[in-house]
Design a protein around this nucleic acid. Structure first.
Length: 227
DNA sequence: GCATTAACCACAG
DNA sequence: CTGTGGTTAATGC
């Protein structure tokens, strides 16, 4: 952990960029930095929470235990705020966060965070902007998830990771296990396994270990579009 | 009816 | 943790 200095943080969010020197000092007094290894839980569903989590570094899955299976709500990569809906909306976490790669997170006290919202309009605006983009994305994902069939959802899942997590790279590390991937697209691990090898056999993707490369983006996009 | 889709189960690397 | 094969229920033509 050690001492931290928010003023000179290299990973400041657009929101914290709008904080004054005094506010940054205040943030620093109410903030703790914690490192997580791959697979470690950052916060847990049904546990009490009084912190907003800011991911400085790393990739995280937000996931929720449903009626009978686990669902991945979102994959978040740094920089990102995590617990806003679940900490501001309630005292109990409605979902969990688990590190998919080694991750550095800052835990910000909810009282200090709320204070910034109340007193600094620019800060509040940046937070709202972030939440709005997020909600829009989720609306789209929700529609796609319920209306597309398996092949389309898997293509979507691949694009989700390639484009949103790895910034549009055609080659990327599959940071999810087959089972986690099925949690992301609402399917079963067997189906994911089958379709992925099918995509591979058709020459749409290549798989070497955990590395996946998109070879035929056009056809995959077609599959995504037509469900 | 018959075909397709995808989940569930079982078993093997 | 993965890949495969068989079985099965739901849905569509």
């Amino acid at each position: 952990m050690g001492t931290i200095n928010c003023s000179i943080c290299d990973f400041k969010s657009p929101a914290t960029d709008s904080l004054s020197k005094r506010e940054l000092d205040h943030l620093q007094e109410n903030c703790a930095q914690v490192k997580f290894k791959t697979g470690e839980i950052i916060f847990k569903q049904d546990a009490l929470s009084s912190n907003i989590v800011y991911i400085r570094n790393g990739i995280v899955k937000l996931h929720m235990k449903g009626p009978d299976r686990e669902s991945i709500l979102k994959i978040a990569k740094a920089p990102a705020y995590l617990g806003i809906p679940t900490t501001v909306g309630d005292r109990i976490n409605h979902y969990s966060a688990t590190a998919l790669v080694d991750t550095t997170a800052c835990f910000i006290d909810i009282t200090a965070f709320k204070e910034f919202i109340h007193k600094n309009g620019q800060f509040a605006y940046e937070i709202i902007l972030d939440l709005c983009k997020n909600e829009l994305r989720n609306f789209h994902r929700c529609v796609n998830m319920t209306q597309k069939q398996l092949n389309g959802r898997i293509a979507d899942g691949l694009f989700n990771i390639a484009d949103n997590v790895f910034g549009g790279e055609d080659e990327f590390m599959m940071i999810l296990s087959r089972n986690e991937f099925s949690d992301l697209i609402g399917s079963s691990r067997e189906s994911v396994s089958r379709v992925l090898t099918q995509f591979h056999d058709e020459g749409l993707i290549s798989m070497v270990g955990k590395k996946i490369k998109i070879l035929d983006r056009e056809t995959l996009q077609l599959i995504s579009k037509n469900g």
